[in-house]
């Protein structure tokens, strides 16, 4: 049973950053702007917030510091995504190219600034954030072991983001307008919605989430930040497509990816799987093969926002 718990806890370390970042991507794409800059924004968010943690070490610690870092990561990601918003909304640039530019810029910037500030590119941090067991809730049998032990407060922030995203997207005026801009911006404009504003909102939300995702990714994974998030921004895009731009499906998709990645990485420590003798490559392939299969079956009536990737031109009605 302990193995089940530890696999589940590890799965969360994969799932939550993927979930948060993919939800960010969802907001942007639902507003009609493709955001492949998620990787770069993750790096930027992680960079600024880890730097904050590094600088305030000793003064702050524990959950206060982590929550402040989350806020800082969100702001950093948002500011950075402004470049993408400006290029692709105001300047009507190719959204893929603008996103790629951000992806290339972010790690270079992180290393450059880190070296100027402290001489080396790795930014050290001390992890004082892990929660061994959540008070009271951690004592619940099974559920406590699954959800409330060996965890980070960011896991709950991720779940909160999921719930809020679902409500905002489907139950508010703002969400309806945002979706309309992604499907048919001309129609939205004709009823008096400011399409540019909506698209800005979408990209900025994606920036904030991706920034948080970067921080959440780095904290349990390493003891320093080395200007990389190991391609998880791109993986989040795959999760987004696998989840068909729908928040709850994105949750399942990211959980599935997370579980498969956990099993692929840790099967040697799980006696049942170790004795099966299936090579780890099989586990590593499963999520991607599944994505392909799912795409084959869903591409005919894909849920992708219709107007995504097309710069909105007021004049073209």
């Amino acid at each position: 049973m302990n193995i089940v718990f530890s696999v589940f806890q590890q799965t969360m370390f994969f799932t939550i950053p993927l979930l948060i970042v993919a939800l960010g991507g969802m907001f942007s794409e639902r507003s009609g702007i493709i955001n492949i800059a998620l990787e770069g924004i993750m790096i930027m968010g992680a960079f600024v917030s880890i730097l904050f943690i590094n600088r305030t070490q000793g003064v702050l610690s524990g959950q206060t510091q982590l929550i402040l870092a989350v806020v800082i990561a969100a702001i950093a990601g948002m500011l950075f995504s402004l470049f993408h918003a400006f290029a692709s909304i105001n300047m009507k640039a190719d959204q893929t190219i603008s996103g790629t530019a951000l992806n290339l810029f972010a790690p270079a910037f992180a290393i450059f600034v880190a070296r100027i500030l402290q001489g080396v590119q790795q930014i050290q941090f001390t992890n004082t954030f892990r929660i061994e067991s959540v008070p009271v809730l951690g004592n619940i049998p099974i559920i406590g072991d699954l959800f409330f032990k060996n965890t980070y407060i960011t896991t709950y922030i991720g779940i909160l983001i999921l719930i809020l995203s679902t409500i905002v997207l489907y139950k508010t005026k703002f969400g309806l307008r945002l979706r309309a801009c992604g499907e048919h911006p001309q129609a939205a404009d004709s009823v008096g919605i400011n399409v540019y504003k909506m698209q800005y909102a979408g990209v900025l939300i994606s920036g904030a989430f991706a920034g948080i995702g970067g921080l959440v990714f780095v904290i349990p994974t390493s003891t320093n930040f080395n200007a990389t998030v190991a391609g998880y921004g791109f993986l989040a895009l795959a999760v987004l497509i696998f989840g068909q731009w729908h928040p709850v499906r994105i949750l399942f998709a990211s959980f599935f990816f997370g579980l498969m990645k956990t099993i692929a990485a840790s099967y040697s420590g799980i006696p049942v799987l170790a004795s099966l003798g299936v090579p780890s490559y099989i586990y590593k392939m499963v999520p991607y093969v599944t994505t392909l299969v799912v795409l084959v079956f869903t591409s005919k009536n894909s849920q992708a926002p219709r107007a995504e990737g097309i710069p909105y031109d007021k004049g073209a009605r």
Partner: peptide, 12 residues
């Protein structure tokens, strides 16, 4: 590289 995969394997 430092990756969640390595961290997970080590944790397991």
């Amino acid at each position: 590289d430092a990756t969640p995969e390595v961290q997970t394997l080590a944790a397991s």
